[in-house]
Design a protein around this nucleic acid. Structure first.
Length: 212
DNA sequence: TCAAGGATTACCT
DNA sequence: GGTAATCCTTGAA
């Protein structure tokens, strides 16, 4: 599972909705395990929400948090053994304009931009540096239009509208930095400190807290 | 049936 | 650095 997480670094995330193609390079991920991992959604029994984590490798596990964000994971355990890798940050390569549109659309959908000054807020996204469009799990979900309905998609299927393209074997593996996962303090010190976050050091697209 | 809280983000002081 | 926004899943009553 940890190996699968590291293997995803440098892979391409591709969203092809028929009108436009969005592509980015995965630069930050976190690994989540099964019952023993108290930070994982699979820490308790199998439920409707985490069912996809028990699926065979290669499926998308999508869930919502805080009522407004969707997070994209890739299931990486054998069937029946829950494990997944959370995609925390992506470096945009192709379809930057579509990513901006998606960010703005998602902002409006969650009514974040409605309140104060929607035009100004949309304008801020329009001028956001490219590297920040998909930096952070919620932003990856927004920039690539990941919906709850995408839960269970086979992202290894080349025909899938949301898919992964592995790093070419010929390409040398990127440098990898390792550190504890973010936002899992509720799991207790042991699991919150587990060094299951992996990122490509130096990437401008890393999520907020970049320290090791 | 219901209360609690979250694998986050961005704005506020 | 603190905290609001906001929906839905979970676990307990």
């Amino acid at each position: 599972m940890v190996a699968a997480a590291r293997g995803l670094l440098g892979a391409l995330l591709i969203r092809d909705d028929g009108r436009s193609v969005r592509t980015g390079r995965i630069v930050e991920v976190e690994a989540y395990g099964g019952r023993e991992d108290l930070a994982s959604h699979a820490r308790s029994r199998r439920t409707a929400r985490n069912a996809t984590m028990f699926s065979p490798s290669g499926q998308a596990y999508v869930y919502g948090v805080y009522g407004m964000h969707t997070c994209l994971n890739v299931v990486c355990g054998p069937a029946g053994r829950p494990a997944a890798v959370l995609v925390r940050a992506v470096e945009p390569l192709v379809g930057v304009a579509a990513m901006r549109e998606a960010r703005i659309a998602r902002g409006l959908a969650t009514r974040r931009l409605d309140r104060a000054a929607p035009a100004a807020a949309a304008d801020r996204i329009a001028h956001l540096p490219v590297a920040r469009l998909a930096s952070g799990p919620g932003n990856v979900g927004a920039a690539f239009s990941v919906e709850r309905e995408d839960d269970g998609l086979d992202v290894l299927d080349p025909a899938s509208l949301l898919r992964l393209e592995p790093r070419p074997p010929a390409e040398s593996p990127p440098a990898v930095a390792i550190g504890p996962r973010i936002g899992v303090g509720f799991a207790g010190p042991e699991w919150a400190s587990a060094r299951w976050r992996f990122w490509i050091p130096g990437s401008p697209a890393l999520s907020g807290r970049r320290g090791a």
